[in-house]
Design a protein around this nucleic acid. Structure first.
Length: 945
RNA sequence: GCUCAAGUGGCGGAAUUGGUAGACGCGCUGGAUUCAAAAUCCAGUUUCUUCGGAAGUGUGGGUUCGAUUCCCACCUUGAGUACCA
């Protein structure tokens, strides 16, 4: 019998589907384990061999956990809202729903043939109304919540309202907008409903506000900070400009501290934690108030400038202050004499785009306002400057400049010839600022003299508080996240507008379904695509979506035109999987299901989601926990980032003059142009199929090829796998040529999961041959050759060292090394001519997570009727590995020169005697007497001298 | 600039409580089988070598009986971030 992988794999995939072999149950005596992949966006291009890498790893782990006696939840679904389908709709008029469904079909077919143990009965699609109903529901929960900094959690908004009604807002310690004004209970109760709603918006965890956003004109939408890379859109690379717009935002900043602290409780890589820590950007310091010294030109009202500093200990080193050019006080404090210069500077900086400012950090620019502030302690006047190195959006938009302790302040001071007082004892600042906090004492600083950083900081804050001119403060870089998108293919908001104020639609009327539109473009008036919908108004009498012409602003009101961003649906999908599909009506997941599965035990996906999906999910989970809907603080207990599989591109070389294509070895010093050739035209030895290349595109039809030894050799280079580089390898081809088991093994064999590594199809024959050898260990031309013979000692040794290594490897997610281990085991057992079922049974269980089809087939041939996935993982027994002797490496000065076999029970002295008597030792020493002989029994002998 | 990760044969990579560097696989070379090819099997494959050996894990230093593994400095590559006060 031959190893007919195509037939075997189809057979077992059908079997698993029919018998629902991998269906998870919500009640079980077994301990639970939730293994999750980041679900894919179903793109039109389908899967390439890089995509399944993480899925294969998680599938191996899920199958392993089943063997280890766990009730495993291993679901899959689709992040099916998104830009590409919509861009395609704009171009072709095809409804994104239709494109998306077609793409999902392709994905499903491709995934199915790789043999994943997914429980497809729990599939979710973010674009399904039954799903996004609950995304809308969570949005409403955010709207109905405020963050209480005293209890350190989100609470229902009505608790805030009753607080306002009885006490006003003075005693409320909430995460809210900066511009809320203090009001009393009486004032609150006398406000109009609109005024009250307006105030509440400043407290809600999702709020509508005019904010400066990243507008991408080419995509016709705003983008979140994490969707912008190097100043252009992450998708498509389109330019992004700043624009003021009224937008929904998420008050994620309220959770900054908990998002930071929570990192300590989860098992993620340090690299990923660092990225999130950086993004949250906590800095501890003080807020200090500087009074502006009034002049005859200034307003009657006294002004104060608030600054944030992380170095209150250096407050006596202040020699000037710098405001962001956009700072609101600039126009009020600038003296008439300086007015022209200041205004010219503001105009100049406003013209520079954000990107220019970012790219050009070397140029120092600024202007003096003519005004002075008073130093809180020394009462000395401090000149107030403006400069674009101070950002309006961070802290207070103003800094106290300490040139001796901050390099930017130092450079600014040097440039404008501002004095640089030195407050660091014994430190030379003639060349640059001394920014370190360590090993230095403060001097020239009145009451701070002689103190170190820590003491001086504490004292400075205390003294500022005494004066009423400052307090300790912590700042975060994390900004609230813009949540509106001016797009069609996303979740509609469950929101209508009454007198311009947003109103939530009651939960029982959800979902609010995406309306039909004729075109997927913004309207002529610049409104989002939903502005084209004719039936897009909310009737409060019938509680239904009705035609726009019924809008009377009494019972029928306009609906929100924006849609939610891509990360909305993906921020909670892991909870949806916990509930069985049949029980999903009426709940996002039942309490029982949520309590049973808790959170994701193992999450595998790409690190590109570090500051997007992985941060937003954590935020939403914390909100849901605070509001009592779930019981966990973190969604993903352990997270692994799989690396990317890169493509190996092929190049042909066209002579720039003659247009002839030269084989790689013949280029010499010719001027040639490198052209990507499709990798399917190239064989394992880098030889080009010239005819296929000629027929590829008309422009190559008559191309002349200069061959070497009758062959055209291509050049190779490793690049990201992409259509445009013609280096994409489709898993469909690999599966049909070598089988899914070979694909699975090979993806793992390529190298460590987390690493970036190039794909090279030629290498797959190695693992494919291994599977053939494995097959032959069980089956020959006459059928099954396994016997019930007692295993030999060497059989047992091979088996048990394999069990030990594979188990360790899986626990450490070192899948590449276990593939090698399998190869070694099969090579050894073949050489040993092992046929014993007592060895070959457990071997099959070890291999089955990696190569489930062949394992399942042989398992059934061995006579088992239950799926191998239900078999128990073999138990490692040390006793089979115990040795009586050891092949000792004998080193001279640390260099191994030869080995010698010695009994393990030999004493140190006996070992030394035996080694010293060996003829090779004598030859090595060449008459010298060794200074020292190191004997580590069971390990090594090292002779020094 | 700052933060983090990684540098090992022609290629992917293996080896860390410090103890035989290059496992396993690809590729390559030679052989067997075959009319031939594919497939399969066997042997070899870090470099240098006077065939005894010697050197060798990005570079230079250090700790140690012994370093791919630990420490210091530097170089290169990749990722994140970018005037964050």
């Amino acid at each position: 019998m031959k190893y007919d992988f195509n037939q075997i794999e189809k057979k077992w995939q059908d079997h698993w589907a029919k018998n629902e072999t991998f269906k998870a149950v919500n009640n079980s005596d077994k301990p639970k384990y939730f293994v999750l992949d980041m679900f894919p966006y179903p793109s039109g291009a389908g899967l390439h061999v890089g995509h399944p890498l993480g899925y294969i790893a998680s599938d191996i782990y899920a199958r392993y956990k089943r063997h280890k006696g766990f009730n495993v939840l291993h679901p899959q679904g689709y992040d099916s809202f998104g830009l590409p389908a919509e861009q395609y709709a704009i171009q072709t008029g095809q409804h994104p729903r239709i494109t998306t469904e077609a793409n999902i079909k392709t994905y499903r077919r491709q995934l199915d043939q790789i043999g994943f143990s997914f429980d497809w009965s729990r599939e979710v699609r973010t674009s399904n109304p039954e799903y996004y109903k609950w995304t809308q529901w969570i949005f409403i929960q955010l709207f109905e919540s405020w963050y209480n900094n005293d209890s350190n959690k989100a609470e229902a908004i009505n608790t805030l309202v009753s607080e306002f009604e009885s006490k006003g807002n003075a005693s409320v310690n909430a995460a809210c907008d900066d511009d809320v004004e203090i009001f009393t209970a009486d004032e609150w109760n006398n406000y109009s409903s609109e005024q009250q709603q307006e105030i509440l918006l400043k407290y809600r965890l999702t709020y509508l506000a005019e904010t400066e956003v990243n507008w991408c004109p080419d995509l016709g939408t705003v983008l979140a900070n994490d969707e912008i890379v190097n100043g252009v859109s992450e998708r498509g690379g389109h330019p992004v400009v700043r624009k003021k717009m009224t937008q929904w935002s998420m008050r994620i900043s309220a959770y900054a501290e908990r998002l930071l602290q929570g990192l300590d409780t989860i098992d993620w890589t340090d690299a990923l934690k660092d990225i999130q820590k950086n993004w949250i950007g906590k800095s501890v310091g003080a807020q200090v108030e500087f009074n502006v010294i009034p002049t005859e030109h200034s307003d009657k009202e006294p002004h104060t400038i608030s600054v944030f500093t992380t170095r209150p200990d250096t407050i006596f080193g202040v020699s000037f202050m710098t405001l962001a050019p956009e700072h609101e006080l600039v126009s009020q404090i600038t003296t008439p004499k300086q007015k022209a210069e200041v205004e010219a500077y503001i105009v100049k900086t406003a013209k520079r785009s954000e990107r220019d400012r970012m790219a050009d950090v070397k140029t120092i620019s600024g202007a003096f306002t003519g005004a002075y502030a008073e130093h809180p302690f020394s009462k000395e006047p401090i000149p107030i400057w403006i400069g674009d190195y101070v950002l309006a959006s961070y802290g207070t938009g103003a800094v106290m400049s300490v040139p001796c302790g901050d390099q930017r302040d130092y450079d600014f001071a040097k440039h404008f010839k501002i004095p640089i007082p030195n407050i660091f004892e014994g430190v030379d600042i003639s060349e640059g600022a001394y920014a370190s906090k360590d090993n230095v004492k403060i001097t020239n600083s009145d009451f701070l003299d002689g103190m170190n950083y820590k003491k001086a900081t504490k004292r400075a804050i205390y003294e500022l508080e005494q004066l009423g001119q400052g307090e300790g403060k912590t700042n975060y870089r994390l900004r609230d996240a813009v949540f509106s998108r001016q797009r069609y293919w996303g979740e509609p908001f469950p929101v209508y507008y009454l007198n311009g104020m947003p109103q939530m639609i009651a939960v029982e009327h959800l979902p609010i379904r995406l309306p039909e539109v004729e075109k997927y473009l913004p309207t002529e008036e610049g409104e989002p695509p939903l502005g084209r919908a004719d039936v897009w108004a909310w009737d409060t009498a019938t509680n239904s979506v009705v035609s726009n012409d019924k809008i009377d602003n009494k019972t029928v009101h306009p609906l929100e035109l924006n849609t939610m961003p891509g990360w909305a649906g993906s921020s909670w999908y892991f909870f949806r999987y916990m509930e069985e599909a049949a029980n999903r009506d009426g709940v996002f997941a039942s309490e029982d299901a949520l309590n049973y599965w808790e959170n994701v035990d193992l999450y595998i996906g790409g690190s590109e989601h570090a500051t997007g999906h992985l941060l937003y999910s954590r935020f939403w989970v914390k909100l849901l926990k605070d509001r009592g809907f779930v019981n966990v603080e973190e969604p993903f207990k352990k997270l692994i980032n799989q690396g990317m599989i890169l493509g190996t591109s092929a190049f042909v070389y066209r002579d720039e003059k003659s247009g002839e294509f030269y084989s790689k070895g013949l280029i010499a010093d010719r001027k040639v142009q490198s052209i990507h050739a499709d990798v399917s035209f190239v064989n394992a030895s880098d030889e080009l199929d010239v005819e296929a290349f000629k027929n590829w595109r008309p422009e190559f039809k008559d191309a002349e090829f200069i061959l070497e030894d009758g062959i055209y050799k291509v050049g190779r280079d490793v690049e990201k796998m992409s259509k445009s580089k013609y280096n994409v390898v489709n898993p469909d081809d690999i599966v049909s040529d070598y089988g899914a088991d070979s694909l699975r093994l090979y993806e793992m064999f390529l190298g460590p999961l987390e690493q970036y590594k190039p794909w090279n199809t030629a290498g797959i024959t190695g693992v494919h041959n291994f599977l053939k050898k494995l097959w032959k260990l069980y089956v020959d031309d006459n059928g099954l050759k396994v016997t019930d013979a007692e295993p030999a000692k060497d059989n047992l040794k091979t088996l048990h060292k394999t069990i030990k290594k594979v188990e360790e490897d899986i626990e450490n997610f070192s899948f590449n090394t276990s593939v090698s281990t399998f190869m070694i085991a099969v090579n050894e057992l073949t050489a040993q001519k092992c046929r014993s079922q007592k060895i070959l049974d457990p071997l099959l269980v070890l291999i089955s997570p990696y190569a489930p089809h062949i394992a399942e087939e042989l398992w059934s041939q061995l006579g088992y009727s239950d799926s191998i996935s239900t078999a128990t993982f073999p138990k490692f027994e040390e006793k089979f590995l115990v040795e009586s002797s050891k092949e000792y490496p004998i080193s001279f000065n640390g260099k191994m020169r030869f080995t010698m076999e010695l009994p393990l029970d030999l004493s140190k002295d006996d070992i030394e005697a035996a080694v010293m008597a060996h003829e090779k030792t004598i030859a090595q020493l060449d008459g010298r007497t060794p200074k020292k002989v190191i004997v580590v029994p069971g390990k090594i002998v090292n002779i020094v001298g």
